[in-house]
Simulated scan of single mutants.
Amino acid sequence: MSWSLWVAITPFLFLLALSPGPNNFTAMYNGMQSGSMSAVVAAIGRNLAFSILMLVSALGLGAIIVSSVFWFGVVKWLGVVYLLYIGVKTWRSAPIALDEHESENKSIALSGHYLRGRQEFLIAISNPKAILIFTAIFPQLLDLTLPVTPQFIVIGVTFIMAEFFAAYIYAVSGNTIRRLIKSQAGLNRLNKGMGSLFVFASMLLASSSRS
């Protein structure tokens, strides 16, 4: 891939990564709960899932999933159910004071990173829209006069970098919002607001189609 082409498509990939969606909502919520850097570490989970989906798309299996009503539906409804579960769980979670939560995180940091990363992974791997991006959009960014595989790798690595950047931006905004809210009532409304976002994301995914 030429340097000029990479410079041209990189802003598009970053804008794509920054678009609102389930994983970015998750990064925002993780930023509220455990800080921006913890949320960025958790984004390893989504990028592992995206790497798998990119490999699936490169092997041609992504096209099969996109074109198959059955398999597209299976992936989609798994994602819908999981997002709905996260939304209800977040809505019902008890508000915890920020200083209390930071103290708690010091003792369970390792397990917390794993759980948040696993959540990011499951949300990303069960989103058929990601397969659509890698199957339908990425090939349009390739220069077909050059070898395809190295270009696909460069685009994939750039997209993963963009996803880490997006996770950081959303996590910082979430952490900022959390620090501005001190009362228990405010924290409770914050949990319900984020829970509603996840439920809304599940509704959007449920209404999605292969087109």
Rank of each mutant, 00 (worst) to 15 (best):
M1R: 05
S2W: 09
W6G: 08
W6A: 13
A8C: 02
I9G: 02
F12W: 14
L18S: 10
S19A: 14
S19P: 01
P20W: 06
G21Y: 07
G21T: 07
G21E: 03
P22H: 03
P22T: 01
N23Y: 05
F25H: 10
F25R: 01
A27V: 05
A27W: 12
M28D: 02
N30T: 01
G31I: 04
M32T: 02
M32S: 07
S34C: 01
A42Q: 08
A42M: 09
N47C: 13
L48Q: 06
L48T: 14
I52Q: 05
I52C: 07
L53F: 10
A58V: 08
G60A: 11
G60N: 05
L61P: 00
A63P: 01
I64P: 00
I65G: 04
I65Q: 10
I65F: 13
S68F: 01
S68D: 04
S68C: 00
S68L: 02
F70S: 01
G73Y: 06
G73Q: 07
V74E: 06
V74D: 03
K76R: 15
K76T: 07
W77I: 13
L78A: 12
G79D: 10
V80F: 14
V81W: 07
Y85R: 04
I86W: 10
W91I: 05
S93H: 10
S93Y: 03
A94Y: 09
P95L: 06
I96V: 15
L98T: 11
L98K: 07
L98N: 03
E100G: 02
S103M: 12
S103F: 10
E104A: 13
N105V: 02
N105W: 12
N105L: 13
L110Y: 05
H113P: 00
Y114I: 15
Q119E: 15
L122T: 04
I125F: 08
K129S: 13
I131C: 12
I131N: 05
I133N: 07
F134E: 02
I137R: 00
P139I: 00
T145C: 05
P147L: 11
V148P: 01
Q151W: 08
V154C: 13
V154L: 15
V154D: 12
V157N: 04
V157P: 08
F159D: 03
F159H: 12
F159W: 11
I160C: 10
A162Q: 06
A162H: 09
F164I: 00
I169T: 10
A171W: 09
A171P: 12
V172C: 04
R179T: 13
I181T: 08
K182M: 13
K182P: 03
S183C: 10
G186F: 14
L187E: 12
N191C: 07
G193T: 08
G195V: 02
G195M: 02
F198P: 09
V199H: 04
M203A: 09
L204E: 07
S207D: 02
R210I: 05
